[in-house]
Design a protein around this nucleic acid. Structure first.
Lengths: 358, 358
DNA sequence: CGTTACCGGTTAAACGATTAATCACCTGCA
DNA sequence: TGCAGGTGATTAATCGTTTAACCGGTAACG
């Protein structure tokens, strides 16, 4: 059955009507009698008609494809985000073309250019911190941080941090260590700022890992055992990845989580639930974020045309709801603050040691 | 400067030549005098000409886009793979359209259909184990496992496993626990089969997690402490994710890695290097795999047309080199097998406990 | 009864690039 | 001089869809 792939004309011929009528019937736009429309749909389905995107794109000037550019695809959060965006886009009939920007600005610009050449109708960009989206001649939605200018939509990192802070505070933690990577990131500042706010009067220290590693070398110890020794009862990490690093460093040092110290992360990555103890973390609602971002871009695309600039001059699109709440996921890595100092008193600790075995 | 986006005709007008000549000059195909070609290229660049993919696609029947369908985008290995494939495709001027198949077969079929409708020239599929690629009317490359029929290219999981087994064996491990998820996966069977082969005469036990969890519930203990107690000195996990689960379960139980037991994974995921101890693992060469897969698909696309079936009937494409070697990454999670039994002898163990502090 | 409005379609012109066919011109050779 | 052959460019058809414009016919309306 090697029939040629049917075009509009073939199904028009089969029914003795014009291609225009078929087009109208299938798109439901023009004026076609209901019964004819039905017959057309039927034969279209029967013949296995698949519209040619190329033909349509050429005529309408729309490709039906959006670009997704990510600062660094190897970011562990990317899979969930890509999945969510692809789903949201598919729901409204759009495809997603991916582009990796390897983290640096020139590559990001090139990636954006490639997408433009491919004729995307719009783009979703998750930029590298600090970098700026530039020179896109189509609507662009930016997913970064609510406190970043030009941001379209993002998780409410600050409130999320606050929720985590409150969680720890309500467990009685009065001395908390914060683990960040870089002070240059809005997302990170938002998150840790929120945590501090949630912790209220508790004592707070902060370690910036990038700075630490610049001195002590990549992958160096974070000195968590010492921190616990000087009274820290909880560690709030900027991400699950950092939390994991902290958790294993603590466990390796024989410090029990959560009995001796609680640990929290951010992102709810895939492994957070399979490790022991399960990681208490703050999850972002990627599905909602994706929906909003896609909707915002589509709005801009379908805008008759903004009065002023004709070129849609690379301005990033704005969304109805820029902040999306995060969700606290409580697992086993957080618990009540220990009362006793550590590890100076090695007597009652035996009962935690006992728990270790179970 | 809101000039209309220049078409071929505009640059033709600017030089007083025909569009055909411009097209020929830019593509280097027809006969154009060198100097005129140069002038054309110059003004094209000056005017910022960007060819319309829609127009070209309509005429040539090629979209310049490949589809990438993944069983489950949230697979932690996906970022690296997607990145590699996007890179390889970009090198040869192709774009990558993503599609998520949510793991189940119907969704996978739908995803493939969506890609076809979008007019992709070919596809790369990383199928869910067991599922079969069906009904694609374009060249398809499958990345799964060398032992899967229809596979185009994949990492040599068996040899990789063997390498891991040899590594452990050379460290003196004579009693090894293998951790798999499901016996239904070719990849997993290849990997563990290879490990066994590499371990030679060593004693080997295997735990299939899916089976275990069916009895004892999701996220249950894997009983690793007991395994160590009965003499296991090394644990080879089917993936880094499982290795991580094992590592934290061990650490939580106060068992030192690698002093008391060595742990290995597969994949070299992003976190493998940041945890303590760093995970010894087997990395697949995603870049090479991507290159080969892309090349195979492109070959099929550019094939004048296979003598027989006109429809390129969904047969998966074959590659020049179906197996790509894996690379052993040795970190701190593996070490010499302990000599003494465990934990029956709790005397010399103090020295490992001493090491814990450092 | 004449004018208007609508209804269910058809015609034909784009959209932008590629490419086979054609053509004018020049050179070389008999 | 006449003809074959090559060169550098043009002409025009084509890909498949959308859509503004048009059209004959009928019903409504003043």
């Amino acid at each position: 059955m090697s029939r040629q792939k049917p075009r509009l004309a073939r199904i028009a011929d089969a029914l003795g009507v014009s291609t225009a009528t078929v087009s109208n019937a299938l798109s439901g736009k023009g004026r076609v009698s209901p019964e004819l429309a039905e017959r057309i749909r039927a034969t279209a389905a029967e013949l296995g008609y698949v519209p040619s995107v190329a033909g349509r794109a050429l005529r309408t000037g729309r490709s039906g494809v959006l670009g997704l550019v990510l600062a660094d695809i190897s970011n562990p959060l990317f899979p969930k985000l890509a999945q969510a965006i692809e789903n949201s886009a598919a729901k409204v009939g759009y495809g997603i073309l991916i582009a990796d920007s390897h983290g640096d600005v020139t590559a990001q610009t090139q990636a954006i250019e490639r997408l433009i050449e491919r004729g995307v109708d719009g783009m979703i960009v998750v930029p590298r911190r600090g970098t700026w989206v530039t020179g896109a001649s189509c609507p662009v939605a930016v997913i970064d941080s609510p406190s970043t200018p030009g941001n379209t939509v993002a998780a409410d990192h600050w409130s999320g941090g606050q929720g985590l802070g409150l969680h720890l505070y309500s467990l009685g933690h009065k001395h908390v260590l914060l683990l960040g990577n870089s002070t240059a990131s809005n997302v990170q500042n938002d998150r840790l700022g929120g945590v501090k706010a949630g912790l209220g009067s508790a004592k707070v220290e902060t370690i910036w890992i990038e700075k630490l590693e610049a001195q002590s070398g990549q992958g160096c110890s974070l000195g968590l055992a010492e921190a616990v020794a000087r009274g820290v009862t909880a560690i709030a990490a900027i991400s699950d990845l950092v939390a994991l690093r902290a958790l294993t460093e603590l466990q390796r040092a024989g410090i029990a989580v959560p009995e001796d110290v609680s640990v929290t992360g951010f992102d709810d990555l895939i492994w957070s639930s399979v490790i022991t103890p399960g990681l208490t973390t703050m999850r972002m609602d990627v599905a909602t974020i994706a929906d909003i971002a896609i909707a915002a871009v589509l709005d801009a695309i379908n805008q008759p045309h903004v009065a002023g600039s004709r070129g849609t001059d690379g301005d990033t699109v704005i969304a109805s709801q820029p902040k999306v709440p995060m969700e606290l996921v409580v697992r086993q890595s957080t618990g009540p603050a220990r009362k006793s100092a550590y590890p100076n008193d090695n007597k009652t600790d035996n009962l935690t040691a006992g728990e270790l075995i179970q």
